[in-house]
């Protein structure tokens, strides 16, 4: 019993036999079919899969943005499944951070205001030491007063990363964070994410279809047709690519 509790404490997010069905009847789409997965604390996990494999849906369900049809989702020791709007709001406020593909910064706020927005929404003050650490890590100190429009794509995404980090959430979900960036800016962001995991013990779950990006993770989970089909520990771009190729073939054949 004690061992189980100890083990659970190591898990930042968990999906337990999660099913997600969209629509009904003829138009029914099974996005997830019985996915069970654990995402350990202090690890950088990538979720990969071809388009339509359900990787984004899995992330949305894990983050409490979308409801599950069956099964349960937990973040830390909170059961996400069945939470009401107030509970979900509190969860997003206190335990979850997001990084989006489209950067999603408020264009009217400066970089600093964007970074501090979740804290001010929650009515909390940031820990100044941690704030300084985050700012230095993303290397934006001289850009804090700029508006998103005055920043490059990479800089904007780093602001978004800082925004997710500064509240020290249980887990950060990143949805194709490098999808809109050139390879150099993408590498900067990914390095930064990996460092925040290695140096500060942050938990990150990242959805991507880019093997190079996935290679930055500690572990890669592969999805196809709504099911987890494979997993890689300490991946490299080559091993990820190989796994992806293997995945593609049976799917093609199945059609």
């Amino acid at each position: 019993m004690t061992a189980t509790v100890g083990r659970e404490a190591q898990v930042a997010a968990r999906a337990n036999d999660v099913w997600k069905v969209y629509g009904s009847g003829e138009a029914q789409v099974m996005a997830l079919r019985g996915v069970s997965a654990e995402f350990e604390r202090g690890r950088f996990t990538a979720i990969m899969g071809p388009s339509g494999s359900g990787k984004s849906t899995l992330m949305h369900c894990l983050a409490g943005l979308d409801s599950v049809t069956r099964g349960t989702v937990m973040i830390g020791d909170t059961t996400v499944t069945g939470l009401g709007d107030a509970g979900l709001t509190r969860l997003r406020r206190d335990k979850v951070g997001f990084i989006f593909q489209q950067f999603n910064l408020l264009p009217t706020l400066t970089a600093q205001e964007n970074i501090l927005l979740p804290m001010s929404i929650a009515g909390r003050k940031p820990d100044p030491a941690w704030y300084d650490t985050v700012i230095d890590t993303v290397g934006l100190r001289d850009r804090l007063g700029h508006r998103p429009a005055q920043l490059s794509g990479g800089q904007q995404q780093r602001v978004a990363c800082a925004r997710a980090l500064v509240a020290r959430p249980e887990v950060i979900f990143a949805d194709e964070p490098t999808g809109n960036l050139d390879s150099r800016s993408g590498a900067e962001v990914l390095n930064f994410l990996r460092n925040s995991v290695r140096e500060h013990g942050q938990t990150i779950v990242m959805v991507t279809h880019d093997p190079t990006a996935a290679a930055y993770a500690d572990r890669v989970v592969f999805l196809a047709d709504g099911q987890i089909v494979s997993e890689l520990i300490e991946p490299t771009a080559e091993t990820v690519l190989d796994t992806m190729k293997k995945l593609d073939t049976p799917v093609e054949v199945a059609r």
């Binding site: 107030a86 709001t89 929404i121 929650a122 925004r163 509240a167």
Partner: peptide, 16 residues
Amino acid sequence: TRELALMRAIGASGRQ
């Protein structure tokens, strides 16, 4: 919509 959804995603409540 997108901006408000973002606010919700980073923790703003409906009342806010």
